[in-house]
Design a protein around this nucleic acid. Structure first.
Lengths: 130, 130
DNA sequence: GTAGTATTTGCATAATGACGCAATTATGCA
DNA sequence: TGCATAATTGCGTCATTATGCAAATACTAC
């Protein structure tokens, strides 16, 4: 993620500022979490529920085996999307609302920061950052 | 994405409001785009460059074959992440800054909207939405 | 037209990941 | 302790996808 276009020599200051912002936000583990349809369904289900849901409950949202759901959930917890918590025999998973929306907004900010500014409008010039 | 937890009967109004927001934003094609390390690298490279980059230039950012980069780029364009444009022999790809950050912020908003509010704080009660 | 450069596509291979089933672990209750 | 319920893990299978190479296409310049 730190390698840069050899053909885009950059203003060091611009490059540093931009590089820092976006590289740190592009956590592909986070996006892998959302990339699978089943996981997206699970996330949406738990998010809309607004509380910690057990694995069995969550499994009712979709048609796959409970073991598959369990694996998805622990993966989502590792990715920082869900917060796991034990209650008796049940394992409750809850969406980490704040952290999640924060991560998305931070990436959006980083992308905006890379967007073309006045000096970069000339199509043939590199904006600096590569 | 429209299926819901059977064990979480919802207040219809809450359910509708929340469901609408998050289901529409969970475009897994968009997140698939970011889920692969190579693609994430390419996106970061083009984003930081701040202009339309040719396939050959972009390929210098990473160690994979140009043909692979070409495939990734056309996939990213299909996903709405990049904007393709021809200039002579070269194909230029530019990040769709506005649309991209907008999509991320919308999802962040939808997630926040699902977050626990006062009435949902009781852990055993479903917030409504499933 | 031909030659040269940039990009895309076809195809085979390798890696990754999702899934179901069965066995195992973890916890609560009598 | 023994039993029941909930969740996780091991393992094999199948589908998807990332990759490289070679061939084909798109475009420019002469």
């Amino acid at each position: 993620m730190t390698q840069l276009c050899k053909s885009c020599p950059a203003t060091p200051r611009q490059a540093a500022a931009r590089k820092h912002a976006i590289d740190r936000r592009l956590d592909h583990a986070l996006f892998k979490a959302f990339a699978d349809p089943t996981r997206a369904l699970l996330i949406a289900c738990i998010a809309k529920c607004g509380r910690g849901c057990s694995v069995g409950e969550i499994a009712e949202c979709c048609s796959v085996d409970v073991s598959v759901v369990s694996r998805h959930l622990s993966m989502l917890a590792r990715a920082g999307v869900l917060e796991p918590r034990r209650r008796g025999r049940a394992m409750l998973y809850q969406v980490r609302y704040r952290e999640l929306s924060r991560a998305l907004r931070d990436l959006a900010d980083a992308i905006d920061a890379c967007g073309p500014v006045e000096n970069d409008k000339k199509e043939d010039r590199c904006g600096g950052g590569c």
